[in-house]
């Protein structure tokens, strides 16, 4: 005679049929919220909210010339990015590369690839120089941005960039970006029931990793394509 009542047996059977039991009751908030946290002061928001958008939203008042930018650049940026933003070692190349995007080895720079100038200002202001973030003044960043435009032949050497004329600068590659379209262009093609038996007559090896031999343990010198 079993020591377990029938109801437990039935439960065990049901569990076998549907073994996945992952409780997912959604956490809810009361009407009107919890009242947690405190209001941010205007000053606190101003200190942290330094991001810039393509429409110029967020730009601080200020200006900087190509000439001043070149000087600031040589002290703060050239060490990694090179005197002419050509990039040193594997540090990002920021100038040149025009017309290479469909080449075998495209060179993606501010001039050849980046769709918006605001991205340059936003990033330099918050995250550069590497290892000394947020040490540059708004005017410094206008100047560096102006110098990068000059390095990419987008402005002349007497150009002065400011919050006033910032939005007038259009980047050459802006139109070549488009919204993710995999749902239309790829997913229908990749949802067919695949072949399971006798799918190919011959199988040949077409590429070997050992040809490049860049796996770290092997001490390879490497570099058949980076991650960014």
């Amino acid at each position: 005679m079993s020591r377990f009542p029938d109801v437990l047996k039935a439960l065990a059977a049901a569990t076998l049929i549907a073994p996945a039991a992952f409780a997912q009751d959604a956490a809810e908030a009361p009407e009107g919220g919890f009242g947690l946290g405190r209001e941010a002061t205007t000053e606190e928001v101003a200190m942290w909210d330094i991001d810039i958008r393509p429409d110029g939203k967020g730009l601080p008042v200020g200006s900087g010339s190509v000439e001043l930018g070149e000087e600031i650049w040589s002290y703060n940026c050239a060490h990694c990015h090179g005197d002419f933003a050509e990039g040193i070692d594997r540090w990002p190349v920021l100038a040149g590369g025009e017309g290479t995007l469909s080449d075998d080895r495209p060179v993606k720079t501010i001039g050849s690839y980046w769709p918006y100038l605001s991205t340059v200002y936003d990033y330099v202001y918050r995250a550069m120089p590497f290892g000394y973030s947020q040490s540059l003044s708004p005017d410094d960043v206008y100047a560096i941005t102006a110098y990068l435009l000059y390095s990419n032949y987008i402005v002349e050497d007497d150009f002065v960039l400011s919050n006033e004329n910032f939005s007038e600068i259009a980047m050459p590659n802006e139109e070549n970006f488009f919204m993710d379209d995999r749902a239309e262009t790829e997913l229908p093609q990749f949802t067919a029931e695949p072949c399971m038996t006798d799918c190919k007559e011959q199988v040949e090896i077409t590429a070997h990793a050992t040809v490049l031999d860049v796996t770290p343990e092997d001490g390879g010198e490497g570099g058949g394509g980076g991650i960014d």
Partner: peptide, 17 residues
Amino acid sequence: TSKYTDLLADGKARRFT
């Protein structure tokens, strides 16, 4: 923009993938 956009063979790039 400069990263995490997918450059296709024709030189155009997908964003927000």
